[in-house]
Design a protein around this nucleic acid. Structure first.
Length: 352
DNA sequence: AAATCGGGGAG
DNA sequence: CTCCCAGATTT
């Protein structure tokens, strides 16, 4: 089948059955599409929607993002994961405001030079918001193309990736690229799903290799599985006069720039680090929990220690602070930290 | 080429 | 429980 016919079928289907009411589609400004594309990296649409709404409400324009504190940007990203995306988004906003007077660049090279924007994200911004003819290659397009062309091998391998980019380039039309790219993503999300694809409703089924061979479950090939290691940490939830001690994580690494409880590699080590006024208090052992990252499991063992102090001498040395549970500051908090803080709030108001 | 970087929904 | 999602960046 010639590429032109492929694109026409996708376009017709997307106009008829595709998604037209996603929050970032009206209006599809470059800024809104950019924010959405960053949030959507490795993240489902349904998960992103409420985050996008809150983020855009607070940072309606790129200048609002530029002038915001990083803590508040991370606050609006809390629970979404991959926090380097938020840090890069904030950095890129500064670059765009300083170097491009607030105008998001409209060419692939300039966009890809910005932190957090790779080829597919740059192409999505330019096509969806500006109508430029640029091929994309996200998880949806990979799945559709792997099945349609019967491409074997895991798409994460560079040879397969190169093949997929070449195919996407060939099939992407010069006109109506926004509708086409949106249609490819809609097909992947609504029809050509990972399990049980609805081939009977697919506009590309007639020439789809996987459909003809019944290989929908085998394509695309899945990532070779690896055993994830486990780590342990004991965290001190120190409550003093209704406030909780938090420490800021280093700018890079897991939960970079977010606020976390002081963490230790053993229980005795954690208890030994308590301030003298707290040592007489009995630590409450909260249930341990397992948190899974993409490449390891973290077993968190929380210890709750409450004490009071007349003199409220606040030690805030820039990388640690007392967090007010009742009137929280706008900080970046990882999902398990937010959950723990909620549990602690419950415990504290039950005890009073 | 392989590792790093979250969290949750689906199966 | 495993797998993977509108990927990019670093090693």
């Amino acid at each position: 089948m010639i590429a032109d016919d492929f694109a026409r079928r996708v376009l017709r289907w997307q106009a008829d059955k595709g998604r037209h009411d996603l929050p970032w589609q009206n209006p599809p400004s470059a800024y809104r599409v950019w924010v959405s594309e960053i949030m959507l990296q490795q993240t489902r649409v349904a998960t992103v929607i409420p985050y996008f709404q809150r983020f855009i409400q607070r940072f309606a324009e790129i200048q609002d993002l530029y002038h915001a504190e990083r803590d508040e940007v991370l606050h609006h990203w809390s629970g979404l994961g991959y926090y380097a995306r938020a840090r890069n988004l904030h950095r890129a906003a500064a670059q765009i405001c300083q170097q491009y007077s607030g105008q998001i660049p409209a060419d692939m090279g300039s966009l890809q030079a910005l932190p957090g924007i790779g080829r597919s994200t740059a192409a999505a911004i330019l096509s969806l918001s500006g109508g430029q003819s640029q091929p994309i290659l996200d998880g949806n397009v990979k799945r559709v193309l792997c099945r349609h062309a019967g491409i074997k091998g895991w798409p994460g391998k560079s040879a397969v990736l190169k093949q997929l980019w070449q195919l996407s380039e060939q099939l992407t039309p010069l006109q109506n690229t926004a509708g086409y790219n949106q249609g490819m993503m809609d097909l992947g999300a609504m029809i050509c799903t990972r399990s049980r694809p609805a081939c009977d409703q697919c506009p590309l089924a007639a020439e789809c290799v996987a459909n003809h061979l019944g290989q929908q479950q085998q394509l695309p090939e899945s990532k070779p599985k690896s055993n994830k290691p486990s780590r342990q940490e004991w965290v001190l939830i120190t409550v003093k006069n209704g406030q909780v001690l938090l420490k800021q994580r280093p700018p890079s690494g897991v939960w970079g720039g977010l606020w976390h409880f002081p963490a230790y590699s053993s229980e005795p080590e954690a208890l030994a680090s308590l301030p003298d006024q707290a040592k007489q208090s009995k630590a409450m052992v909260l249930p341990s929990r397992r948190h899974s990252f993409s490449h390891f499991h973290l077993h968190i063992h929380p210890l709750l220690v409450e004490y009071n102090e007349k003199t409220n001498a606040c030690m805030e040395d820039g990388c640690s602070l007392w967090y007010n549970i009742e009137q929280p500051q706008k900080l970046g908090l990882a999902a398990p930290v937010s959950r723990l803080l909620q549990e602690v709030q419950q415990i504290l108001e039950t005890n009073t």
